[in-house]
Design a protein around this nucleic acid. Structure first.
Lengths: 155, 155
DNA sequence: GCCCGAACTGTACAGACTGCCCAGTGATTT
DNA sequence: AAATCACTGGGCAGTCTGTACAGTTCGGGC
């Protein structure tokens, strides 16, 4: 699926995204064409989705992150709700889930008070029956995939 | 905090991460130096964290995503648990939270069976008393920050 | 009304990188 | 033994980056 060189390449790009293909080849001790081919293949296979800018909501003023679980009225289903959620900028992601709730969303707000505004927006969505929110106090493990890439390379 | 040009710049980079500063300046109709200065400032202020490769766990074979809530023994606190969680590659992120649980983690597995293995790893962590897992079935709103950037720019 | 700082424009130059191509090599498969 | 595949090392033209600088515009303060 993925080999050691791929993993080292991803790790390198993760550590220093600004460097180019040529610099990668030097650091990894392989030919430039190889790095180029690997990168192309990784993107083609979808392993690397892209190199979009990572935006930090906190730096934009949205300093509170929370997770909100939704219960949704059976009739109508998830789709209309998801569409309405997608229209709320503060909804960073939304999943349908198993278990007690029906959907789980990550949301942000400018503060606890602003978070209430966002929650109200969600509660107002047609089809949402009940919500339950937990606030993220700290993030000891920030989002990451590098360890996973390394693990995948060892297979 | 952030203005319309910043937002358009981020949007552009999001849509086509491969393009360079020069191309951005052409598309946005401003001088190259301006784009360069804006980008530098956005990164300096931390709004743009970086341009690391976005890895898709599913493409690596980790096709199941789940959220697991942990209850942690009071004595000892979160930190040792967080450290042990960080050592598990399948733990994509971990937050301490308010409410019923003590921590919320996003985890992945190669399948439902493999997910059980990951959960077992977590349950085995010293200090973890109880866990509760929900599986993400679908992701109608994939992780995004662009709408937030646009909203921030309108302030 | 005037001045100032900040930001933007337009331009320039050297150095470096990218995309592309090709021949040769070694390892693995057929 | 022939074929296939990935990697190496090299070359070339075109383009971009980093940096610098002078001129212009714009909003606010005096």
């Amino acid at each position: 699926m993925i080999d050691d060189l791929d993993a080292r390449l991803i790790g390198l790009l993760n550590a220093e995204p600004r460097i180019g293909v040529l610099e990668c080849s030097r650091r990894l001790g392989v030919a430039r064409g190889t790095v180029q081919a690997r990168l192309d293949r990784l993107q083609e296979r979808g392993v690397i989705r892209g190199f979009g800018p990572e935006v930090d909501p906190a730096a934009l003023g949205y300093q509170v992150t929370a997770f909100i679980t939704l219960e949704i009225r059976q009739v109508g289903g998830h789709d209309p709700v998801a569409a309405r959620l997608a229209a709320i900028p503060e909804v960073i992601e939304a999943h349908t889930i198993t278990g007690g709730g029906d959907m789980l969303c990550r949301i942000v707000g400018r503060g606890n008070q602003d978070l209430q505004r966002v929650i109200d927006l969600i509660v107002d969505v047609e089809g949402v029956q009940r919500t339950s929110t937990v606030i993220a106090l700290a993030t000891p493990v920030p989002q990451r995939t590098l360890p996973l890439v390394r693990a995948a390379a060892r297979q």
